[in-house]
């Protein structure tokens, strides 16, 4: 026997290898390829924005937990790190550092810790930070540096509209898709990330790679990303089929903007998504539908951030109405 007293606890006496921390760091690993692409495309400015977001998120979490809430400091659990990275991924490269810091404060202070910290927040913290910045500083937040291959000093050089911005603008001025199309980046560029947009939404390929890794590691299930993207594709596809002169084709919609980033990394946030698979599908359908409506008919060219936040609010309701089927309940229903 050991010197220490024997341990008594209730069953089970074994535990799986999974821990919250491991899940969090898997997400961080999955985000690495996308980050490398943005480094390649935007150079140093991408690093500055990401570093600023990560450091300030961790810093605010520490500060608030240590001195304001006086609770245990949990910056090592990886959740603030992910919030920082995802926030940065949703910002344009070259955004002033002080704005990034404000965004982090809103994300950590308002969206996460004021609700009770990890596990209790209703809305995705990174998206709350992003949307806060978008409505507060609309000009800076839509100043997209244009991607020029491997050009470290491009931040000062050029800015341009995103793919979706181009379409929105064009359609508003009454142009037809045939007229807009030549200005749009080709599909292979969208896949590789040679386009303009937020830091992390550049390369569809890198994001899908990370997403597949997460699904393979069972951190997320395929239900949310696949349903979101499928809904976007099907809905935009119907409009495109009905009137291809006014609506872009579904491939552009799926590959451009934050659709893939949102579908794989933001909507799947464990805390703010439903717990059952059925609920996840409903949640993802809602996100897809709202995104398409905002993109096609709203004032903003991109709407997935709003769509996810709106559906986040519905998660408790979804959890309530989409419960797993209780074992043995079907038979009872038959008797009755």
């Amino acid at each position: 026997m050991s010197d220490q007293p024997i341990i008594v606890s209730a069953s089970p006496h074994v535990h799986s290898e999974r821990t919250s921390k491991k899940l969090m760091y898997d997400v961080v690993i999955a985000l690495v390829p996308a980050f490398l692409v943005s480094l390649y495309v935007f150079g140093f400015s991408a690093l500055i924005v990401t570093a600023a977001a990560v450091v300030s998120c961790l810093f605010f979490e520490y500060l608030i937990q240590r001195y304001l809430l006086k609770t245990e400091v949990t910056i090592a659990d990886g959740s603030a790190l992910i919030t920082g990275i995802l926030l940065a991924f949703n910002l344009p490269a070259g955004l002033p550092v002080w704005m990034v810091v404000i965004g982090s404060l809103v994300a950590i202070g308002v969206a996460k810790l004021s609700f009770g910290g990890l596990g209790y927040n209703i809305f995705n913290p990174a998206l709350v930070g992003r949307v806060f910045l978008l409505v507060s500083f609309p000009v800076q937040m839509t100043l997209w540096p244009t991607a020029v291959e491997n050009n470290a000093s491009l931040v000062d050089a050029m800015t341009g509209a995103t793919t979706l911005g181009l379409i929105k603008e064009g359609v508003q001025f009454g142009e037809t898709m045939t007229a807009i199309s030549p200005n749009l980046p080709p599909v292979q560029d969208m896949l590789l990330g040679i386009t303009s947009g937020s830091l992390g939404e550049m390369s569809a390929l890198a994001l899908i790679l990370g997403g597949v890794f997460l699904i393979a590691r069972k951190v997320i299930s395929w239900h949310i990303p696949v349903t979101v993207l499928a809904t976007i594709a099907v809905m935009t596809g119907i409009f495109w089929w009905a009137d291809p002169e006014h609506y872009a084709n579904p491939l552009i919609h799926v590959l451009s903007g934050g659709a893939i980033l949102g579908a794989f990394y933001m909507a799947t946030d464990l805390v703010t998504s439903p717990v059952t698979k059925k609920g996840m599908v409903v949640f993802a359908l809602g996100i897809g539908a709202i995104t398409v409506v905002i993109r096609l008919f709203g004032a903003y060219p991109e709407g997935i951030s709003f769509a996810i936040l709106i559906m986040n609010a519905f998660v408790p309701l979804i959890n309530r109405y989409f419960k797993p089927r209780r074992f043995g309940s079907r038979i009872k229903a038959k008797i009755m």
Binding site: I6, I7, V8
Partner: peptide
Amino acid sequence: KTSEYQGPRSCAISALIYSGE
């Protein structure tokens, strides 16, 4: 103490599990 209890810190729950530390 002759044993160490690991579980929720509640008398009602630990009394259900065993006779105490």
